[in-house]
Design a protein around this nucleic acid. Structure first.
Length: 762
DNA sequence: GTGGCCCCTGTTTTT
DNA sequence: CAGGGGCCAC
């Protein structure tokens, strides 16, 4: 290894030079953050960043600065090894991580690093496939089918093949297809020893036909086709492999077979592969991730160097001890000894709530108390196993008027109204997209039911066209279209009407920017009237559409293609509103890679965490444990574990058993609170549930229940979270005062005076 | 042939 | 409690 001077003077000196790299790339270093921060690395990190080993495997415990190492490594390569940024490829787990890393690199290197390839596997693959479309069975503006689309394709195929959905659930058939793709298997590679396998194979074949006919790929295809492209086209592979002198991957433990092979292809010329990961944080087995890639890496690259990062910079020792106690129960792992120099810190709280409502109430009240005491809202996170658990939390947050941020792309993009509009846009962009066509052809209802749809498909098939082409012909030529006669007169005219809309939109989109097209579609189909029935729910739906519209605005310059691609590839973490200083609600999966000062993990009950679906399979149980481990290790200072003695699973109340994982945490690290110690304020069984939680929220706020109006319009007030504001309106509702305040930061809010802790300013 | 209504079922995690 | 599918009435 080349010795590398660590003297501060030297670093400051080189900071004044403008360096020129082979290939003409220039970076002007102003303040040399690269070198300055290099000094702050611990010996292991320093070794990882500066090592000359061609293949490096960094096994990094949680909070050990692995992202930092990755970023520094890139900066080091560019700055010290004179590697041209265009010769570097770095793979991150989320788009957000990629964005942040790019920003950090630009700061460190003092210039743009546009030439560096940095993104998720899926985004990188999409980029490659669009570039190399000429060698592929689809063209460059293919659309990407999401999980929903995939499911509906499978359903359609099952219907076409006359297969009973009850016997062969679409989800399970789809997972067979997905697994096959992750293992680089086509329909022909699938075994067919059982009837079930035979079915899956046949569905797979048809499924592929639909994708190709739609000029579409699914998530798994992005990876599979990229690998296949490289396998079957050595010149193309060499082009990329020659370019990428250095390939770096984050979250390596969560790569699947296709991703691993892709990495090997991409680094097949220079063989410089830098992988960072942690077996203990592998939580995506169910989607094909295989932490044994870590072992494969070592046997594929016998020369590779393995480094361990064990020093934790994030958490207190109590948190780490609990985490270790939990993960140590898993066999077959590289033993690590995490240590922190942050001191033992406070005990871990385990709160035993009577039921799920009390669970949510406890969390929210605890957070409110701490925020009121001056803590920043953004320091808090509440984590759970299943998305459904967020609901009670949200209700509790709303009840006490505390803003929160909910993480989850599905939450937004999975909504019907959002999916509808996206489907319209996709259809305009790519009329071959039959999945989208089927989705929206009768939205809002325009008289195109199943019979007409079947006729349309028959017509299309008989003339070897796609349904959209038939539709467009009807739309353009009306009665003169060759397809007019075969339909019933009613069918022909409703189809022609919709076809005409589509024709217009397509023309319109040639000359007009995306937001204009967006508005035009909404107007033409009367979408607002369709979804907004004036109710609160309806208004919410319309607001979602407007939110999507706002997003479309951001893509005015970049265009519809990028808009659709980014929508298809958003990850949950991409949806964290960074600018907002409020507690974060997220699944344990979405929490990977993040950290918070205060972490609450709720639902520590058997069946939820660990989830009941993992009971039979020890491998899955081990993954549940890792998931819990990931959650625990997100906490910097305070960890609070919460469970509920009973919860309403589907409609009915059920008693729960404490999670087995809790037994593994030594008692001396835990401070037990809740039901068992009689801390509960209200007996939930004596009253209706909603009242008990509302009452709990009230009684908890000790004194301030105003007998009469405390506030007046025009008063200046201050809120612990939203800051300064002015009272707009106030009125007495029941035994409480409702105040409407215009805040400088968040605008208009309506608050209950007894709960909101508004302070009047002079 | 379409659309609305009712019943039934079924709950992990997501690029 | 919600979404989807099947059935029945216009």
């Amino acid at each position: 290894m080349r010795h590398f001077p660590r003297s501060g003077l030297f670093f400051k000196l080189i900071a004044f030079f403008t360096r020129t790299y082979p290939g003409g790339y220039k970076v002007k270093s102003s303040i040399d953050m690269t070198m300055e921060s290099l000094q702050k690395l611990n010996p292991q990190q320093y070794e990882a960043v500066t090592s000359d080993a061609r293949q490096l495997l960094v096994l990094a415990g949680p909070g050990s600065g692995k992202t930092r190492v990755l970023t520094q490594r890139i900066a080091f390569l560019v700055h010290e090894k004179s590697v041209n940024p265009r010769a570097i490829l770095a793979v991150t787990f989320t788009n957000k991580a990629a964005r942040e890393m790019r920003a950090r690199l630009e700061r460190m290197l003092g210039g743009s690093v546009d030439a560096l390839w940095l993104g998720t596997f899926h985004a990188i693959c999409a980029r490659i496939l669009r570039r190399e479309a000429a060698a592929l069975p689809f063209d460059a503006n293919f659309v990407i089918m999401d999980a929903d689309d995939q499911q509906s394709i499978v359903k359609r195929v099952l219907k076409d093949l006359n297969i009973d959905e009850k016997l062969y659930p679409p989800a399970s058939i789809h997972s067979i297809i997905s697994n096959a793709k992750n293992a680089m298997q086509g329909p022909g590679d699938l075994r067919s020893r059982t009837y079930r396998e035979e079915i899956a194979k046949r569905v797979y074949e048809q499924y592929e036909k639909i994708l190709r006919a739609s000029n579409a790929v699914d998530f798994d295809d992005l990876l599979m086709w990229s690998v296949r492209l490289f396998e079957e086209n050595p010149p193309i592979r060499e082009k990329y492999a020659r370019r990428f002198e250095h390939v770096l991957v984050d979250e390596f433990q969560d790569t699947n077979q296709a991703q691993y092979e892709l990495l090997k292809h991409l680094s097949s010329q220079h063989h410089c592969l830098f992988a960072v990961g942690d077996e203990d944080q592998s939580i995506y087995r169910w989607r094909g991730a295989d932490y044994r890639n870590v072992l494969r890496f070592q046997s594929d690259y016998p020369q590779s160097v393995k480094l361990l990062l064990e020093r934790n910079y994030r958490s207190t020792q109590n948190v780490l001890d609990a985490a270790q106690a939990v993960i140590n129960q898993n066999k077959a792992r590289t033993p690590k000894n995490l240590y922190s120099k942050r001191g033992s810190g406070p005990l871990i709280t385990l709160y035993d709530a009577v039921d799920d409502h009390a669970e949510a109430a406890f969390v929210v009240e605890d957070i409110l108390d701490r925020i009121s005491a001056g803590e920043k809202g953004g320091n808090f996170a509440v984590m759970y196993r299943t998305n459904a658990q967020s609901r009670l939390l949200e209700e509790a947050f709303l009840r006490i008027n505390l803003p929160y941020r909910l993480v989850g792309a599905q939450r937004f993009y999975g909504r019907k109204e959002v999916k509808d509009i996206i489907a319209f846009l996709r259809l305009v962009h790519n009329p071959l997209d039959t999945v989208s066509l089927t989705r929206v052809i009768n939205v809002p209802p325009r008289g195109i039911g199943s019979k007409t749809l079947i006729d349309l498909n028959i017509q299309a098939q008989e003339s070897s066209l796609t349904p959209s082409e038939v539709l467009l012909s009807l739309g353009e030529q009306g009665e003169r279209s060759p397809f007019w006669l075969p339909f019933s007169s009613r069918g022909a005219s409703v189809l022609a009407d919709f076809g005409a809309l589509l024709v217009n939109w397509r023309e319109f989109s040639q000359s007009q920017p995306l937001p204009e097209l967006f508005d035009r579609i909404l107007k033409d189909i009367g979408y607002k009237e369709y979804i907004d029935d004036g109710s609160e729910v309806g208004e919410g739906r319309w607001e979602n559409v407007l939110e999507l519209r706002r997003l479309a605005y951001e893509y005015q310059e970049r265009g519809i293609n990028e808009f659709l691609e980014n929508i298809a590839l958003v990850s949950d973490q991409d949806t964290v509103p960074d600018e907002m200083d409020a507690p974060t609600l997220l699944t344990l999966h979405a929490a990977k890679g993040l950290e918070f000062s205060h972490v609450y993990i709720i639902g520590l009950d058997e069946g939820l965490l660990p989830h009941s679906r993992s009971f039979e399979d020890p491998e899955e149980m081990a993954e549940e444990r890792r998931l819990f481990y990931v959650g625990i290790t997100r906490a910097k200072d305070l960890l609070t574990l919460v469970r509920a003695g009973q919860r309403s699973n589907y409609g009915r109340f059920e008693y729960t058993m404490e999670s087995r994982f809790l037994e593994d945490i030594p008692e001396n690290l835990i401070n037990r609170q809740g039901m068992r110690l009689g801390v509960h304020r209200v007996n939930p069984l004596s009253q209706p549930r909603w009242e008990s939680t509302a009452a709990a929220a009230q009684t908890n706020r000790k004194n301030e229940k105003p007998p009469e109006a405390r506030f007046k319009a025009g008063m200046r007030v201050i809120h612990p979270v939203w800051g300064d504001g002015m009272v707009v309106e106030t009125r007495i509702l029941g035994n409480d005062e409702t105040v409407t305040v215009m805040f400088e930061t968040v605008g208009l809010k309506r608050l209950a005076a007894s709960v909101a802790r508004l302070e009047i300013m002079r």
